[in-house]
């Protein structure tokens, strides 16, 4: 027994020595090290996780943190200096509360309007979508679908997808009922939850990031006669879209590792990963 433990310990030591010897060799050429603190939007999760994974593979001594807490916190914590790079899935506010920052877009994301697989509705105009979300249109039969009441599914207050969707469709936050999202809309707290809800309810409509659409679960509806796809995003015909941003402090010098990460995301390799995630690369 003791012998077994001794052998195990020896093996472990050998392994740890080996890994010690390996790391510097791998990271030798870029000579980057340290931790890059980033955080923000949850909509960018799938693309950002892939980018970080590949970046860390290339630079073994660098760790990129990504706290998923929403665009608002991403921006705020970049202002306070907690994050070197903030993730935002909406533009910076122009009311002065988010000044002193640079936002660089690295991807364009389509917002897909999704319905249940059993739903026969093919296409919706901007006005129809607005009507549905403000409660002016309540039945699918009014927009060429089945004779059933529409179950409106929305994201929770504060979500980047919700604010981008509301802005494009023309849904105001103000108390004016004719332009606000109906109060009886079902609220789901994540992209996945919206998709699940819509997939289980034949009369539901929802909106999620195109990069997260699972065609086995839900159908996408044409917006203004255009089907959401990588192509329609690229040629600019699909209008329901928003950009993903990296947010940094204006004039601040990033640490070498953070700068390298930013360059990577905007560079050829990073943009290729963006494209693989059903997003439109900015370059």
């Amino acid at each position: 027994m003791k012998k077994a433990i001794a052998i195990l310990a020896a093996l472990l030591m050998a392994a740890s020595l080996a890994s010690c010897a390996n790391t510097p060799a791998d990271a030798a050429q870029p000579a980057l090290s340290g931790t890059v603190k980033t955080g923000g939007s949850t909509s960018v999760e799938s693309v950002m996780t892939a980018l970080i994974y590949q970046f860390q593979e290339n630079n073994r001594s660098v760790t990129v943190n990504y706290e998923m807490n929403g665009s608002g916190d991403g921006i705020k914590n970049t202002i306070s200096g907690l994050y070197e790079i903030g993730h935002s899935s909406r533009e910076l506010k122009t009311d002065g509360s988010e000044s002193g920052l640079d936002a660089v877009a690295y991807a364009i994301d389509g917002i897909a309007i999704i319905v249940n697989k059993a739903n026969t509705t093919q296409t919706l105009t901007k006005d129809q979508v607005k009507g549905i979300y403000t409660g002016a249109i309540t039945s699918w039969s009014e927009v060429g679908g089945q004779d059933a009441l529409i179950t409106v599914v929305t994201r929770e207050e504060g979500s980047g997808t919700r604010s981008a969707f509301a802005e494009i469709i023309g849904l105001e936050k103000s108390g004016d009922d004719s332009t606000a999202i109906v109060s009886y809309a079902a609220v789901s707290d994540s992209t996945g939850a919206v998709q699940t809800t819509v997939s289980q309810n034949p009369d539901a409509i929802g909106y999620i990031s195109f990069s997260e659409v699972d065609a086995n679960q839900v159908n996408t509806v044409q917006y203004e006669g255009v089907t959401v796809s990588s192509d329609s995003l690229k040629d600019g015909t699909y209008k329901l879209k928003r950009e993903f941003y990296l947010v940094t402090k204006q004039g601040a010098t990033l640490t070498p590792a953070a700068q390298a990460f930013k360059d990577y995301v905007l560079g050829t390799d990073g943009q290729k990963i963006v494209g693989e995630k059903k997003l439109l690369p900015i370059k």
Binding site: G70, D73, E156, G158
Partner: peptide
Amino acid sequence: LKPARLLTASIPIEWAYSS
């Protein structure tokens, strides 16, 4: 028969994006 939001559910639903 209408959707409803309970006190408990309000917190986890909106926590992540709130400020």
